[in-house]
Amino acid sequence: MGNTCARKPLTDSIPQKRNGSQPENSELRSMTVESENLLNSNAKISKDDFKIIKVIGRGTFGKVFMVKLKENNMVYAMKVLKKEQVASRNLRVKTKAERDILEKIKNPYIVDLHYAFQTEDKLYFVMDFLNGGELDLKPENIILDSDGNLKITDFGLSKQGLDKQNDKSKTYSFCGTPEYLAPEIITGEGHDKASDWWSLGALIYEMLSGRPPHYQKNRKQMMADIVEKRIEMKPYFSVEAKSLLSGLLERDPSKRLGSGEEDALQIKRHPFFAKIDFQKLYDKQIAPPFKPTVSGPEDTRNIDKMFLDETAKDTPAVSNLSPDAKKKNHFDEFTYQGNNGGVEGLKFKKK
Rank of each mutant, 00 (worst) to 15 (best):
M1S: 10
N3V: 09
C5G: 05
C5S: 14
K8P: 00
T11I: 15
D12P: 04
Q16D: 14
R18I: 11
Q22D: 12
P23S: 00
L28V: 15
L28Q: 15
E34C: 07
S35T: 15
E36A: 14
L38G: 07
S41K: 07
N42P: 00
S46K: 06
V55W: 00
G57M: 00
G57P: 01
V67T: 13
V67K: 01
K70Y: 01
N73L: 09
M74L: 10
V75E: 06
Y76N: 06
M78K: 07
M78H: 05
V80G: 03
V80S: 10
V80A: 05
K83H: 03
E84W: 00
Q85M: 12
V86D: 03
R89I: 02
N90S: 11
V93T: 12
K96R: 13
N107R: 03
P108L: 07
I110C: 10
L113E: 00
H114W: 14
A116S: 13
Q118L: 03
T119V: 05
K122M: 07
K122W: 02
M127N: 07
G132V: 06
L137V: 08
P139H: 09
N141R: 09
I142P: 06
D145V: 05
D147C: 07
N149W: 10
G156M: 07
S158N: 11
L162Y: 02
Q165S: 15
Q165Y: 09
K168S: 12
T171Q: 10
Y172Q: 11
P178M: 09
E184R: 08
G188Q: 05
E189P: 01
W198C: 05
G201C: 08
G201K: 06
L203C: 11
I204R: 01
E206G: 01
P212D: 07
P212I: 01
H214Y: 14
K217L: 13
R219S: 14
K220C: 05
Q221S: 13
M222Y: 05
M223Y: 04
D225M: 01
I231R: 05
P235C: 04
F237Y: 03
S238Q: 03
L244Q: 04
S246E: 11
S246Q: 13
S246R: 12
R251V: 08
D252I: 09
P253S: 11
S254R: 11
E262T: 06
D263H: 12
A264M: 02
L265M: 14
Q266L: 12
H270Y: 06
Q279S: 15
K280N: 11
A287V: 13
P288M: 14
F290A: 08
K291R: 13
P292I: 09
S295E: 15
G296L: 04
N302W: 01
M306A: 12
F307P: 04
D314C: 14
T315V: 10
A317C: 15
S319I: 08
S319L: 05
S319V: 10
K326M: 12
K326A: 00
E333C: 07
E333D: 15
F334G: 02
F334R: 00
G338T: 04
G342C: 02
L346T: 01
F348P: 04
